[in-house]
């Protein structure tokens, strides 16, 4: 099958007793689809997302892309991008150099990099912000930069972990629409984790509900 295929995935955190955050979850996401994972905090949705991307180890199960097993592929070679809850922009790099990071890692030539960064900043509505320090940005601007940074290297799948939850309510509503349009415009396959049903409806074409480590 084409796209993402998660089979019987479990995440267990060490401890006494060990905590099963994700319990044998299976799901598929077709190419170009935007799926929301909706659930209360602590239900395991962020752990599931992190396991798919590869920042958290799996206890069991498999992650496949276009039928190819990527479970043992290290994060940086998986080609899955991620937007973190609080942006996680690099404080020692300007806006443009944050967006360029993934392109630098992929050894994209400088000129191509520059034009791609400009395109990405335009896509998220931050033309001309390239030389700013990330510490000067507002919360909404930070998340736009984080989105541009994740999209720049052209990930096969974009994971968004509560991308808007650090923002105030009014801004959240507006940005949710923007994010959906940006994802559609770039044709990106995406999984969005959120605890807000309205946000899930706005951003995603399909909503999956999660409770106690399982899809319901």
């Amino acid at each position: 099958m084409s796209g993402l295929d998660v089979e019987d995935l479990s995440v267990v955190y060490a401890g006494t007793p060990p905590v099963t955050a994700v319990d044998t979850v299976s799901l598929t996401v077709a190419r170009g689809e935007i799926v929301a994972l909706l659930g209360p905090s602590g239900c395991g949705k962020s752990s599931l997302l992190a396991a798919v991307v590869g920042t958290v180890p799996l206890a069991s199960g498999a992650v496949r892309w276009d039928g190819e097993d990527v479970t043992a592929t290290p994060v940086h070679q998986r080609g899955f991008g991620m937007v973190f809850q609080d942006g996680q922009l690099f404080p020692h790099r300007s806006v443009a150099r944050n967006v360029a990071f993934g392109l630098e890692m992929a050894r994209v030539p400088r000129d191509e990099r520059r034009s791609r960064v400009a395109d990405m900043l335009e896509l998220v509505g931050l033309e001309g912000f390239g030389d700013r320090a990330v510490t000067e940005l507002s919360g909404g601007q930070c998340q736009r930069v984080a989105l541009a940074r994740s999209l720049a290297p052209g990930p096969r799948l974009l994971a968004l972990d509560e991308p808007l939850s650090a923002l105030d309510a009014e801004l959240r509503g507006r940005l949710a629409v923007d994010v959906r349009e940006i994802l559609l415009a770039s044709g990106t396959t995406a999984v969005v984790v959120t605890h807000d049903p309205d946000e899930a409806e706005v951003m995603a074409s399909r909503v999956l509900r999660m409770e106690d480590g399982q899809l319901v």
């Binding site: 920042t55 998986r78 996680q88 690099f90 890692m105």
Partner: peptide, 14 residues
């Protein structure tokens, strides 16, 4: 923050 390192990893950094 650990997520900052994770962010770099998801952008393709070894």
């Amino acid at each position: 923050p650990a997520p900052m390192r994770a962010a770099a990893s998801t952008l393709g950094a070894s």
